[in-house]
Amino acid sequence: MTDTGTIVAFWALAALTLGAAVLAATTRNLLHAVLALILSFIGVAGLYITLSADFVAVAQVLIYAGAIAVLIIFAIMLTPNAGRRNDETFFRLPALGIAAVMASTLAAVGVATDWPQATRGPFTETSQAIGEAMLNQYILPFEIASVLLLVAMLGAIVIVRED
């Protein structure tokens, strides 16, 4: 990160991501929370672009902003009383506990990892390398993930089947 453009983009995108994330966590309206979360996802995609990871950035938009968000939207639509205020809940303490555990884990990883410094070289094509890695070196995890998703899909079909 040497040139001004990247630095400006990084701070703007980081502010967008974190601001949207805070909004998603604090707003009382479920749908507003989802919309803020989508904005946060898009901010993360922008951060990937500043790291020259074009494939990952587009996949982030496609999968998180396009698919995961739609999944959450479906969950909201199938929730009774989704439009009510959500601050009256006795799950507050367990939620705080889980959030604290998650946050401390992430912080520990962040501190313990020796982060490599990104060098802003020319835009290289990453999709081919990713494809080759997935179908050669990491073929087994790739296939296991596919089978897992297939099983999840079949399970969903079995659950909603009427007859």
Partner: peptide
């Protein structure tokens, strides 16, 4: 990643 970009941008219209 043009083709992927087209799909990703069109998937945002849903929202």
């Amino acid at each position: 990643v043009g083709v992927l970009f087209v799909i990703a941008s069109s998937s945002l219209a849903t929202i």
